[in-house]
């Protein structure tokens, strides 16, 4: 199950997000890490240190691209310049799949740089799926869409978030980057059962899983990526692995970033669950 057409038939283990504060440590110490996820937009430049570091990382590690501003759900055409640069980067990294969010964030060419929640309507699903297909056709690697954390819901929605996700990925015939932290955050903000969401996702389309920490406020939870993964999220992760098998897993840590070793140690906790799902395979990965 984990190696599927949505992740380029790969069997990746536990990875971590490549972040600037860790560059020096990674390049000097060359720690054993199964793979790194990069934020595509940070390397869609013409030259300089970002690309130099990326090339050095690519000499040693496998890299998967994750985007934050394709905005599949924005009701405007795709940005051709963005697509062109994304494809150049895909060629550079050899990413077996790439991901971005099931959200919108730009209107009339103006960017919010945020991951705004979709209205869960059939019109939006159709539009979004068409744009995902266009991206997939253009970049020529499988695309996985990630469910976002949200703090608002719309009156116009005609279905649940997981129904919308399923509607989009079926229409687009694309993969899913299942973010179990985002499911937990949204479940608390919108009072739904997170496990119902995880159970509703088509397991055969899950290309990758995200885990992360969040921050709890008096009336809502924010997806801050500045903490270790909390127990309810690990529980959802366990359930996702139970359903999907040992799937490529990535820890996101984007704020108050601790040392590389701390981040890596937190990510490797995922192996507890991956080992239960396929002990032999995960042990082999660990040895390698």
């Amino acid at each position: 199950m984990p190696a599927n057409r949505f992740n380029g038939y790969t069997e990746y283990g536990v990875g971590i997000g490549l972040r600037i504060p860790h560059y020096r440590h990674i390049l000097q110490e060359k720690p054993v890490v199964d793979w790194f996820e990069i934020i595509s937009e940070n390397y869609m430049v013409d030259g300089g240190r970002p690309l130099t570091v990326l090339d050095q990382i690519l000499e040693q590690y496998r890299v998967v691209q994750h985007g934050v501003s394709m905005y599949f759900g924005s009701a405007e055409p795709l940005n051709r310049e963005h697509l062109k640069r994304l494809k150049q980067l895909v060629r550079r990294t050899g990413t077996p799949w790439l991901s971005d969010h099931l959200c919108w964030g730009s209107v009339d060419g103006r960017y919010t740089h945020d991951l705004l929640p979709m209205p869960y309507t059939f019109e939006a699903a159709q539009w979004t799926a068409e744009k995902i297909r266009q991206v997939q056709d253009f970049v020529e690697v499988p695309v996985a869409v990630e469910n976002v954390s949200s703090y608002a819901e719309y009156h116009v929605s005609e279905m649940t978030e997981w129904e919308f996700l399923n509607e989009v990925v079926e229409r687009a015939d694309c993969g899913i980057l299942l973010d179990v932290n985002n499911i937990y955050v949204s479940s608390q903000n919108h009072s739904f059962d997170a496990r119902t969401y995880v159970d509703a996702v088509p397991a055969e389309r899950v290309a990758q899983i995200h885990i992360a920490g969040h921050s709890k406020f008096e009336k809502y939870i924010l997806d801050t990526h500045d903490h270790p993964v909390l127990d309810p999220v690990w529980a959802l992760y366990a359930r996702a692995i139970e359903r999907c098998g040992p799937t490529a897993t990535l820890l996101e840590w984007d704020d108050n970033i601790p040392t590389f070793d701390e981040v890596h140690a937190e990510a490797l906790k995922a192996n507890r669950y991956l080992l239960q799902a396929a002990p032999e395979q995960v042990e082999l990965e660990a040895v390698r």
């Binding site: 600037i20 934020i39 937009e41 940070n42 300089g48 240190r49 970002p50 994750h66 934050v68 501003s69 969010h101 740089h113 991951l115 954390s149 992360a212 921050s215 406020f217 924010l222 997806d223 801050t224 990526h225 500045d226 996101e252 984007d254 704020d255």
Partner: peptide, 14 residues
């Protein structure tokens, strides 16, 4: 010692 702050992320600021 760096370029732009362009470092795109996908988290919320508390």
């Amino acid at each position: 010692d760096a370029g732009s702050s362009n470092s795109s992320v996908n988290n919320a600021a508390s």
